[in-house]
């Protein structure tokens, strides 16, 4: 099983993402933003960071990178794609997911261990969790406030497309405490907190994040 991890200029978390893919039992394949080539991968992770320096809007320029054109086609064909943090922003800019991520409501960059509930365990990236499971993984971003119009919000709610929600105090002003969402098909997931930083208690607040990466292995075996 090969999981591609994309590196844009300014990506930070590609190494941790590749490590998490390896810890889950798959091979991580590095994908370069400038190559329109997915190297035969079965799934893709768009990791966190500040691709293209967050110029214009977070993810707005990355979305047009040559590798993204391939990823958009593959995602529309059902390939599992997980966007974490900046990767989530890229997926929204690419219109693979609805809504947008805007500046945290209190303006501060946040970096903390965050409690979440997993609310949809039928996506390609969340089947290893149980419905309503509480997990703790790092949240670190400046523009993590999930925004969309009322119609989109009620569709996300009624179709069960909210994958994870913040527990406790609202960290960033996201509508309905949304931390992660999925597309209609369940193969594309965007998540603001960072599961790849929580795969081992030695280096993270928990090993809860590993579940996202073991889930996609199961999804690919099916």
């Amino acid at each position: 099983m090969k999981v591609g991890v994309v590196t844009f200029p300014g990506t930070l978390d590609d190494r941790d993402a590749a490590r998490a893919v390896g810890a889950a039992g798959a091979s991580a394949i590095s994908l370069w933003h400038g190559d329109a080539d997915l190297k035969g991968v079965d799934a893709v992770v768009l990791p966190g960071g500040f691709s293209y320096g967050d110029y214009l809007r977070c993810g707005a320029i990355s979305r047009f990178a040559p590798v993204m054109e391939k990823i958009i086609d593959a995602a529309n064909g059902g390939m599992p794609v997980l966007g974490i943090c900046n990767g989530f922003q890229v997926l929204c800019e690419a219109h693979l997911l609805p809504g947008a991520l805007t500046r945290n409501h209190a303006l501060h960059f946040l970096c903390r261990d965050q409690k979440l509930t997993i609310e949809n365990t039928s996506t390609a990236w969340t089947s290893s969790f149980s419905q309503g499971q509480e997990i703790v993984i790092p949240l670190k971003n400046g523009e993590g406030s999930f925004q969309c119009d009322d119609q989109t919000l009620s569709a996300l709610e009624s179709e069960g497309r909210i994958v994870a929600r913040y527990l406790g105090e609202d960290p960033n002003g996201s509508r309905n405490l949304i931390a992660g969402i999925t597309n209609e098909r369940g193969n594309v997931v965007g998540l603001m907190p960072h599961p790849e930083h929580a795969i081992n208690v030695l280096t993270g607040p928990s090993a809860d994040g590993l579940g996202f990466f073991t889930s996609v292995l199961k999804a690919m075996v099916k």
Binding site: L56, R57, A60, I61, E93, P98, G99, A100
Partner: peptide
């Protein structure tokens, strides 16, 4: 397409 995000 690029300068604005019509979603927001």
């Amino acid at each position: 397409k690029l300068l604005a995000n019509p979603v927001i």
